[in-house]
Amino acid sequence: MANNKALGTGGRKSDKDLKIRVKTAKGRKVASTKWLERQLNDPYVARARSEGYRSRAAFKIKEMDEKHKLFKKGMHVVDLGAAPGGWSQVAAAAVGSTVEKPLVVGIDYLDMDTIPGVILLKKDFTEDDAPAMLIDAMGGHGADVVMSDMAWPTTGHRATDHLRIVHLIEIAADFAIQVLKPGGSFVAKVFQGGTEHELLHMLKRHFSTTFHVKPPSSRKDSAEAYLVAKGFKGRQEPETEL
């Protein structure tokens, strides 16, 4: 008895049937195979390629901007941990940054190809002289948005990884408070476990609104989310205990 598949009458294949399967090649780890399979089946990876973005991460900041109105024409933006450059690409287009008048400055210790309208610094942001280099590259302008997609390579130890990402957020937030104009915004990657109470308290003192966001393009099985702080009040003096 002929089956429906042979006769071509089985109807539309399910999404599961249409997924690309990747065989584990000799010398390739199972984890690498799974990552490759996920990339090949990720619609955001395909969209990034077709729309000229350097990574799927570009859609995360794009979605956050669409919902929370982070960028306006003429704004100055700093991108911490910019590689491969997707966030800088989105910001440059949104603020109208050009080669003649660059409004976006990005920094990363990894090599990046040039992006029109973006000043790129090859430097580890955690090094002591990195903030001064960024301020110099900004040409005396304050920032309207400081954004950070920085993350350390994970160790597999949950508590350690949490402390490491909190440290990155802290130094990014300290920099943002130094350079933001009143009304400015700060965006930073966080992971499951949330933001440390002291850090969140500090941000609430300096910003009108502070909240967590998980944009649609952030994978559902990922622990990542983003901390968004808007309405910078200007540098506030630390609270003193009585």
Rank of each mutant, 00 (worst) to 15 (best):
K5Y: 10
A6L: 08
L7Q: 15
G8H: 14
T9G: 00
T9Y: 05
G11F: 08
G11W: 06
G11R: 13
R12V: 10
S14G: 14
K16N: 12
R21L: 05
V22T: 11
V22G: 06
K23E: 11
A25R: 14
K26R: 13
G27P: 00
G27Y: 10
R28H: 10
T33E: 04
K34A: 10
Q39A: 11
L40R: 15
D42C: 08
A46T: 09
A46K: 15
R47T: 02
R49S: 08
R49T: 05
R54Y: 08
A57V: 03
A58Y: 02
F59M: 02
E63A: 12
E63D: 09
M64V: 09
D65V: 07
K67P: 00
K69I: 09
F71V: 07
K73M: 09
G74Q: 13
G74S: 13
M75G: 02
M75K: 11
V77L: 11
V78Y: 00
L80F: 04
A83W: 00
A83Y: 00
P84Y: 05
G85Y: 00
G86I: 01
W87H: 08
S88Y: 00
A91E: 04
A91L: 08
A91H: 02
A91P: 01
A91W: 00
A93P: 01
A93G: 14
T98G: 12
T98M: 13
V99D: 12
E100C: 04
E100Q: 15
G106S: 08
D108F: 02
Y109Q: 11
D111E: 14
T114V: 07
P116C: 08
G117C: 04
G117F: 01
I119C: 02
L120N: 03
D124V: 14
F125N: 01
A130E: 03
A132F: 06
A137H: 11
H141L: 08
G142C: 07
A143C: 12
A143K: 09
D144T: 06
V146C: 07
S148T: 09
A151V: 09
P153F: 10
G156A: 15
H157L: 13
R158N: 07
A159L: 15
T160A: 12
H162W: 14
R164G: 06
R164M: 10
L168P: 01
A173R: 01
F175M: 07
F175A: 03
A176M: 07
V179Y: 03
K181Y: 01
P182G: 06
S185Y: 03
A188E: 03
K189Q: 07
V190I: 14
G194I: 10
E198H: 14
R205I: 03
H206C: 07
S208Y: 07
F211K: 15
V213L: 04
P215D: 05
P215Y: 01
P216G: 06
P216Y: 02
P216M: 02
S218H: 03
S222T: 05
Y226V: 06
Y226P: 01
L227K: 05
L227G: 00
A229Y: 11
G231A: 08
R235W: 12
Q236A: 13
